[in-house]
Write a protein that binds this DNA or RNA. Structure first.
Lengths: 249, 249
DNA sequence: TCGTAACATTGGGATGACCAATTTTGGGAA
DNA sequence: TTCCCAAAATTGGTCATCCCAATGTTACGA
């Protein structure tokens, strides 16, 4: 009886696996290992680190799962090109485990995106504006439902980028992706013109460098989306990578 | 030559490890495995899943590293009590790898926290208010520098909770933690009264249910912090769990 | 009753063998 | 010479075993 009341300890253990993971992280962050690098074969690396192949593999598996690198049988181990994606698995998992609903996700966007739109109005570069404008123009002539959804998402991503806040560029696209299914469903309730009638004023405000206006127009847009979501009856569950896993259980 | 132009594929591979990870995630999200559960010994689980112990260990290692569970030698494997913490490692890693500075972290807070304060003013429950109030009262009589920093952080966490947005409660405390070192440094530039002179108006606005005021007071607070950070000369680097790792490299 | 030593259990790590996917090599045909 | 394809080498994926060290349990003795 009397199991540990001690909390699990958030800090990583000091076992070989974690030390290897730390070693890789340091090597990468120090620039010793550049993104895209092909690492030596496991059978070579293991002795070089002074560990067994299995221990090394534990670490590599964890790193692969974190999105730091990927392995291909018969080929080798490669560092991923960007740190983008490191967050997606854990964040989607968190959303899944906590059972966070689409409306909660939308609320989070409502907290963040208006302010990001305002920042975008202050800082957007020419390429940023071009990119935003392009999604709008393409949306005009696009008919395919799925591509329209992609363009919708691209517009918002464009604002994340234009806001100039790198952390936001990493975090919030994932939240948006997580409600992909919801976006798809709600967008069947309206046509592209409806979406455009919200995107355009946002773009205009950003283009004209009017932060307050951009903020408000984004609020209008997301509040409208909230209405649509309610109408859709929350049928949609959060999308997750995890759905794709097989049996075994 | 001619290596794959194909992008690394964001989706997980279909190897045993990943299937096991998926299986666990599903079992947990479906409630079959409850948080805190003690799992069977590896030597039992492996045959039950129809895999070898080493493969199972790969998956468990990855899951442990993700913060889903933890293992103790001689004891066993336990699911973590909450999904809290799943994000911390990857998010900190992202900050480290992208070299995101303290001022960028602060800017992210500036994007988010004012709005969260406003929501808190709309929704804070009595316990929420009590909790916020307590951090203020304790800050009054606390002298220890480190504990003051903790109380500072606790106040902001309290607002995250009071905002009622669960996803924010998960994400933003980590960002705050990531700039722990910076907070500690800037707080040596001022005394507790200085911090309190900002916290109190925020609390009052929340208590009096004045969202707009809460939003503005939070902006004032963080803008002041930005000034302090600039004065501190950005000496501080982001804090990271990763710092603690040993050599091996 | 309490402490402690012996024992059992459990995760940590190493090794070696074999499989399967992929790339590389080299020879043969056009 | 150029191109195609089969054989060989390379590489990650998986498994089976062995031993160690940390922890928990049990039972004995003061």
């Amino acid at each position: 009886m009397a199991s540990k009341i001690t909390q699990p300890a958030v800090r990583p253990k000091d076992d070989i696996t974690n030390r290897l993971i730390g070693a890789f992280n340091r090597l990468i962050s120090q620039g010793v290992l550049r993104p895209g690098t092909k690492l030596p074969p496991e059978r070579e690396m293991a002795p070089r680190f002074g560990v067994s192949r299995s221990s090394l593999r534990h670490a590599l598996k964890a790193l692969e799962n974190m999105g730091i690198l990927y392995q291909r049988v018969g080929d080798g181990t490669y560092l991923r090109e960007s740190s983008e994606g490191i967050l997606s698995r854990p964040l989607e998992l968190l959303i899944l485990l906590d059972g966070i609903s689409a409306s909660e996700l939308l609320e989070t966007r409502l907290i963040v995106e208006p302010e990001l739109a305002a920042r975008a109005a202050e800082r957007a570069t020419s390429p940023d504006l071009d990119s935003l404008n392009r999604t709008i123009r393409e949306m005009h002539k696009e008919r395919d439902q799925q591509k329209l959804t992609e363009l919708d998402i691209a517009f918002h991503q464009g604002i994340f980028v234009a806001s100039g806040n790198r952390l936001s560029q990493r975090i919030f696209p994932i939240i948006q992706r997580a409600m992909l299914k919801s976006i798809a469903i709600t967008s069947t309730l309206v046509d592209a013109d409806h979406t455009l009638s919200f995107h355009k004023p946002i773009y205009d405000a950003i283009y004209k460098r009017r932060p307050a206006e951009a903020r408000q127009k984004m609020i209008d847009h997301l509040e409208d989306a909230r209405g649509l979501l309610a109408k859709a009856g929350e049928r949609a569950q959060p999308t997750s990578l995890l759905d794709s896993f097989q049996s075994i259980g």
